[in-house]
Amino acid sequence: MQSQLNHFDEQGNVVMVDVSAKNATLRTATAQGRITVSADVLRAIVQGTAAKGDVLGVARVAGIMAAKRTWELIPLCHPLALSHLSVDFTILEQESAVLAQCTAQLWGQTGVEMEALTGVTTALLTIYDMCKAMDRGMELSDIHLVYKDGGKSGQYRREEEQT
């Protein structure tokens, strides 16, 4: 793991990292997170009866749109020409939760971890927004990088925590 902070120049000024000398490689990142909701909210999501419409459909589009604009939201992120973005959901009935997963990919000189994290977080926030009239006690949690590949640092796969 790199210990030097690379968003600062020799004089201590904040800078965007220069990636122009880096080799382009296939870069992939997957992030996930969950939102825990009431049983009524989960039922409305699954049955498509939420007052604001297709919760997961809208959340999918919101996550993709946000990932594409990560560079506008996170200071010093590079604007990227993403070649693939997906946002998928798994209903966790026993936990009364929705698991969201975002995968971003490109052929380029810098990674796509921030895009995957932005996509999954925005998808979860959209679920909250579309269902808050039914339950303001929903909780977003466990947002993290699951996998990344490409570049000098190679592959990373998160080990699942032991419960």
Rank of each mutant, 00 (worst) to 15 (best):
A104V: 07
S38C: 10
T110C: 00
M65P: 01
G63V: 12
I35H: 12
E139W: 00
S38E: 06
A24L: 03
R136M: 04
A29Q: 08
L76M: 15
T90M: 09
L145D: 06
S153D: 14
T126G: 04
G48M: 05
L140F: 08
G119Q: 13
A67H: 10
L85P: 01
Y156L: 05
E93W: 03
A67L: 11
Y147N: 02
R60V: 06
G119F: 08
K22F: 07
L125T: 06
L42D: 11
K132P: 04
L145M: 03
R69V: 00
S20E: 07
L42K: 12
R157H: 14
Q101D: 01
S141E: 09
L73V: 08
I74Q: 10
L42M: 08
L124R: 06
S96R: 14
A51P: 10
M130K: 10
K132H: 07
I127Y: 10
G150S: 06
Q101P: 00
P79D: 01
S141I: 01
T126Y: 06
T110L: 02
E72F: 02
A97W: 03
A50M: 11
D129R: 08
E139Q: 14
S83L: 01
A50I: 04
L73R: 12
T28D: 02
M114W: 01
T70H: 08
Q109H: 02
L85G: 02
K152M: 11
T36V: 12
V37Y: 10
S20W: 05
Y147D: 06
A100I: 07
G151N: 11
K52H: 06
K148R: 13
Q105E: 15
G137Y: 07
V55F: 11
A104M: 07
T126V: 08
E139P: 00
K68L: 03
R60Y: 10
L106C: 00
V17T: 15
G119C: 09
D18C: 05
V112R: 04
L82K: 00
M65T: 09
D40A: 15
A100V: 13
C131E: 10
V61F: 04
L124H: 03
V46S: 12
A62H: 09
P79K: 09
V19G: 13
I35S: 13
V46R: 14
Y128R: 13
R27L: 04
Q105M: 07
K132D: 07
G151L: 10
L99P: 01
Y128F: 15
A62Y: 04
V58C: 05
R60Q: 15
Q94F: 02
L56K: 10
T70L: 05
S141P: 04
T126Q: 12
A123G: 06
A21E: 15
G108D: 01
L26S: 11
G63N: 12
Y147M: 00
